[in-house]
């Protein structure tokens, strides 16, 4: 896509700007859709209907109306809050989650930045979110918010390790950090997906990544930072209006980002599961990629509306004493396999 654009518009800065904006065209409608979708999923899991009125058909316009309301709301900054940090925090959080989109390959033809350490970049840039959350919690000057942000910092930092280790397992098989390259290696049929290779090592790595990524994005059963029954709302207790919407948006953006990484590394990314059937054109690629990611997001939502929440110490236990040792075993296993088999 970059080369085509460069041919079209000779200005390099403009091209890069355009490339950077493209994912935003997906993220915002996705967040609007996902909030509505989640409400619908939860409703149907709980024997109710969810939003049914706004917009006519099954309340499809509910989140649009919500956003319209949030935009109109008065911008309240608590008097005791640390004003600068309070205002800045939602943007930092959003930047952290949006920056990860730069290296996510949406299709064979499109990836924001074709860097050969794409995965490495994603892992490191998404850590920026923690700083934003800490800022939000601290600046709110609210004890519950502080608890939420500290919990979330501890949680995200702890779970980054199993995330990185699980991804490393896939990288060991692929031999590259380049997201597009990893994707291309899995093209072909469903059996070429990394999740089914070096069985069961990568399969387990995929599961570990999924579980740890739930904690990364603060979803149930790891939603302690914002556990409303304990911490009221965690770090976003004091936020309202557009700033809250931005925090919310980055949460859903994060959800999609981790799903996209899972899909890219383990489920063949934009590749069709049926070999050359329905593949080749960019819209097929995009379609498969989004479809697979949405399936993963559906599983995330499904878990959220089924499972209770862990406690802080149990969360740390799962991270440090279960997921990390298992990831090490997987890395050892794959390493031995690669050495023994030679590839």
């Amino acid at each position: 896509m970059k080369t085509e654009l460069l041919n079209l518009i000779a200005n390099e800065v403009l091209v890069y700007t355009l490339m950077a904006v493209v994912p935003l065209l997906w993220v915002i409608p996705f967040a609007l859709f996902a909030v509505w979708w989640e409400r619908k999923i939860s409703a149907h899991m709980q024997d109710r209907l969810g939003p049914m009125l706004t917009g006519g058909w099954h309340g499809w316009a509910q989140t649009i109306a919500d956003i319209a309301k949030l935009i109109q709301k008065e911008d309240i900054i608590p008097t005791a809050a640390d004003r600068k940090l309070f205002v800045l925090a939602p943007y930092v959080v959003f930047v952290g989650s949006y920056a990860a989109y730069a290296a996510i390959p949406f299709a064979a033809a499109y990836v924001g930045a074709e860097i050969n350490v794409g995965l490495f970049y994603i892992i490191s840039i998404s850590s920026l979110v923690v700083i934003g959350l800490l800022m939000a919690g601290w600046a709110s000057n609210n004890k519950w918010s502080l608890y939420g942000s500290l919990r979330s910092a501890a949680q995200i930092i702890s779970y980054e390790i199993p995330v990185a280790l699980a991804l490393l397992a896939a990288v060991m098989v692929a031999g590259t950090f380049d997201m597009q390259e990893i994707n291309r290696l899995q093209s072909g049929s469903i059996l070429d997906w990394f999740i089914f290779q070096k069985f069961p090592f990568l399969f387990l790595a995929g599961i570990i990544y999924f579980v740890a990524s739930l904690a990364e994005v603060n979803r149930t059963p790891f939603d302690l930072p914002e556990s409303e029954s304990e911490l009221v709302g965690g770090y976003h207790t004091e936020y309202g209006g557009m700033r809250f919407a931005l925090l919310f948006l980055s949460e859903y953006a994060n959800m999609f980002a981790v799903s996209a990484i899972l899909v890219t590394l383990f489920f063949g990314g934009w590749g069709s599961p049926f070999g050359s059937f329905l593949s080749g054109a960019w819209y097929f690629d995009l379609g498969w990629f989004l479809l697979k990611s949405m399936v993963v997001i559906f599983v995330q939502m499904w878990l959220r509306w089924t499972l209770p929440r862990l406690r802080v110490d149990q969360l740390m236990y799962v991270g440090w004493k279960v997921l990390i040792p298992f990831s090490f075993v997987i890395i050892l296993g794959i390493g031995a396999w690669v050495i023994a088999a030679g590839h």
């Binding site: 939860s42 899991m45 709980q46 024997d47 109710r48 149930t220 059963p221 939603d223 556990s227 029954s229 509306w305 089924t306 499972l307 209770p308 929440r309």
Partner: peptide, 16 residues
């Protein structure tokens, strides 16, 4: 109690 522990769905089942 389910809500307190973080599970939403049982609450709605009970209400039903």
């Amino acid at each position: 109690y389910g809500l307190d522990i973080g599970a939403f769905t049982p609450f709605l089942f009970c209400m039903r």
